[in-house]
Design a protein around this nucleic acid. Structure first.
Lengths: 247, 247
DNA sequence: GGACAGATTTCATAATCCGGAAGATAATTC
DNA sequence: GAATTATCTTCCGGATTATGAAATCTGTCC
């Protein structure tokens, strides 16, 4: 192993908790980093000891710790996450002539980070603060497929928003597998009827930190060209965004 | 040792480099964390491997790495360092009726972070970007005394700005020792004639991350009360600032 | 009360870390 | 340009820590 194993693992957990942007229980971290539970538990405890993570005894959730926040304070100045994401969204919105959006948050409770409406013909299908169900939107599926565990069975049963919504456990698992293989997710009227969306993972190292996507009316999306072709362009844009985040 | 030793040591090095706000060669980090050189070398190498630190091969200096910056981005924090420091400075300036300032940067090349002029009778003796010599200002002396090594002998000979400037190696070492014991530093016309200043370390855990001080004309400073008495008030203010930085 | 998910603890083994000392390399001096 | 000095880098055996499967604990929901 070229990197220092213990240290790098600790940082992976730190990445996961901080990038998720929400407090996480142990299981969620385990799912995201795919390490043995006892290992994650111990590493997280050490991170809490050193102040990089904070642990809420009552709710049993981990969040960024004081030392971590101080680091953020001392190296702030380069601007915010939105300063980086916004130009990319604007560019994607313009090139695809559809609403572009970026979602963060591993596991459930994905939150819209920001979105950008193109100059012409656009209408926002997403709104700040919008929460993405993990199984019925392109962004939710992408994040689940790439950052979560291989779909723990017995999930709180997925809601069937529309006729096209996939809710069967096994079928969903297959869907996630296909998404992992393809590198992107499509969504045809599974959440809102007549609405088509696609999303690609923003991957930094081994972690998926966000999803980048576009959304628009089904008819217009199809008439704009082969969805899979456009999805591959979206993947390229997501990779560029990931590269920017590595600064 | 209650904390995980290896992990905590790595974080100490991270703290030092990030809080210093400048790129540092290995020796400076060694001086600041007082650990064996080979140990610091190895830990720093690991931090570079995991992307938390960046290493400039040519100049042999360490700085914050891409992964570290990303953490800062995702840490949608409460705002900037100045948001925290400014109110404290304003309060100190008001209570002491003198110009208050805050300096960061371990070792040489200390930089003024910000300053605050009191409502009445104030005139700024410090200016943004001002660099503090380590031996001839209260802030410089405090930072050297608390964050540097025990004064490596054979320093680039300290410049004698004024008659009162201490330049002798041994004498300087004694001065730093006294500062460490007292917990604050005074400066009577050692840099600018007729200017008196005092500074206290802002200590977070084992690290000194900044210096908080006031500066004003010698006569007014003395007539305002016993300098040592006021210095102790300054120390209390610095401790409060340190507590705020721990959020 | 039983079934269950999630959080801790245990423990033998394996891997990492430690830091003094020696070896390289770069910068400076004479 | 050779000697000197400061700094960086590598080595290595012993001390320490990490690892992860399995067992245990702890709440919660039927």
């Amino acid at each position: 192993m070229s990197r220092s194993d213990p240290l790098d693992r600790a940082f992976r957990i730190l990445d996961i908790v901080v990038c998720a942007g929400r407090e996480m229980p142990l299981v969620d971290i385990v799912a995201a980093c795919r390490l043995p539970q006892s290992t994650v538990f111990r590493l997280a405890a050490h991170l809490v000891d050193s102040g990089m993570l904070a642990f809420d005894e009552t709710r049993k959730v981990y969040g960024p710790g004081p030392r971590c926040r101080r680091l953020g304070l001392f190296l702030r100045g380069r601007g915010t996450l939105r300063d980086i994401v916004d130009p990319v969204l604007a560019d994607v919105a313009r090139r695809f002539a559809e609403t572009a959006f970026c979602v963060t948050g591993a596991g459930d409770g994905n939150r819209l980070l920001h979105h950008s409406v193109p100059e012409v013909g656009g209408r926002a299908f997403v709104h700040p603060g919008f929460e993405f169900p993990a199984h019925a939107t392109a962004a939710g599926k992408v994040i689940r497929a790439f950052s979560g565990a291989p779909e723990p069975p017995g999930e709180d049963l997925p809601k069937k928003f529309q006729p096209a919504t996939v809710t069967d456990q096994d079928a969903l698992e297959r869907v996630y597998g296909e998404i992992r293989k393809a590198g992107y997710a499509l969504n045809d009227s599974e959440y809102d009827p007549g609405v088509f969306s696609m999303a690609a993972p923003v991957r930094v190292g081994p972690e998926t930190v966000a999803a980048l996507g576009i959304v628009g009316p089904r008819d217009r999306m199809f008439s704009a060209g082969d969805p899979h072709e456009r999805a591959r362009m979206l993947v390229a844009a997501a990779d560029e965004l990931a590269a920017l985040l590595c600064l």
